[in-house]
Design a protein around this nucleic acid. Structure first.
Length: 271
DNA sequence: ACTTCGACCTGTTGGC
DNA sequence: TGCCAACAGGTCGAAG
């Protein structure tokens, strides 16, 4: 479900409703997520007040006095706040019960997501410590990208989806950014010129910012924490448009496989 | 140190 | 209608 814009949208929606709120209890109905939920999660969280919400890559960080709750939505995870009388539905795996008659409820049909507690500084946690730069921060520059790609022979699309290179760019926005930059998705990453790197950095940031502005892309079932869809899907140029005409040149868009993921691109616009 | 590929899951869709 | 294969917004970690 979520790439960076979707996670950012969820984070912004939850922020005003969770900051300053204290956790009363945790109910786990299904502990087999990507990793089993820690046995003592409820004890870690009990009586902790949520000081702030933030995002690193596609991880949501809920900081508290003695540590941080880290949530990843995987492919199909979602979070919403419901009243404490709302009965759970299918795939409602975890409830974080709040002291204000609300519940932060985690639903995830495929269970590729993760919820875990750490008392380390989050950036030092093994899952976060090797992440590349945030695409919307100034350290994601064309000089950085050029250097990061200089020994990479695999395709540019696979590289920009690699969290060591840059975080938060998933299958949708990788395809969109490459289309905007007019770069062929199968180009070997180390062959990009400095000006192409510059263009690609601009394209990634432009696409992500536009998607955040629209509240993310609802492809199948993404909704924000209020249950509302995102509206960027209607602006997608290539993702999900295999065999349809390119919006720029009207040539038929083509789908290929890269690293077991589908890529749609325009063979004329992207050389 | 690089790349490739299987693994983790459920639900939907399309072909026969 | 049923059955089966393929596919879906992610990404870790083992194996080569």
């Amino acid at each position: 479900m979520p790439e960076l814009p979707e996670v950012e949208t969820v984070m912004r929606g939850l922020k005003p409703r969770l900051e300053g709120v204290t956790i009363k209890d945790v109910v786990v109905r299904q502990d087999r997520l990507r990793w089993p939920i820690q046995r003592h999660l409820a004890q870690y969280l009990e009586n902790q007040t949520i000081a702030s919400l933030s995002r690193r890559a596609k991880y949501l960080l809920l900081s508290m006095q003695s540590g941080t709750l880290i949530i990843h939505l995987g492919m199909t995870g979602s979070l919403k706040i419901v009243s404490d009388t709302t009965p759970p539905i299918k795939h409602d795996h975890v409830d974080i019960i709040l002291n204000n008659a609300g519940i932060l409820r985690y639903n995830d049909p495929r269970r590729f997501g993760a919820i875990f507690w750490t008392d380390q500084t989050p950036s030092l946690h093994p899952l976060l410590s090797k992440l590349g730069p945030e695409p919307l921060e100034p350290n994601f520059s064309h000089t950085y990208l050029l250097k990061a790609l200089q020994n990479r022979r695999k395709s540019i699309k696979e590289c920009i989806m690699d969290n060591h290179v840059v975080v938060g760019v998933g299958n949708i926005y990788a395809a969109e950014a490459l289309f905007m930059a007019k770069i062929h998705p199968q180009r070997s990453a180390c062959t990009l010129t400095p000006s192409e790197c510059n263009l690609l950095v601009q394209s990634i940031t432009t696409v992500l910012k536009a998607a955040i502005k629209q509240g993310g892309s609802t492809i199948k079932d993404f909704t924000n924490s209020e249950g509302k869809p995102g509206y960027f899907a209607q602006e997608l140029q290539v993702y999900g448009r295999d065999s349809l005409p390119c919006r720029l040149c009207h040539h038929t868009l083509q789908a290929i496989k890269q690293g077991q993921r589908s890529t749609v691109f325009c063979p004329l616009c992207q050389q």
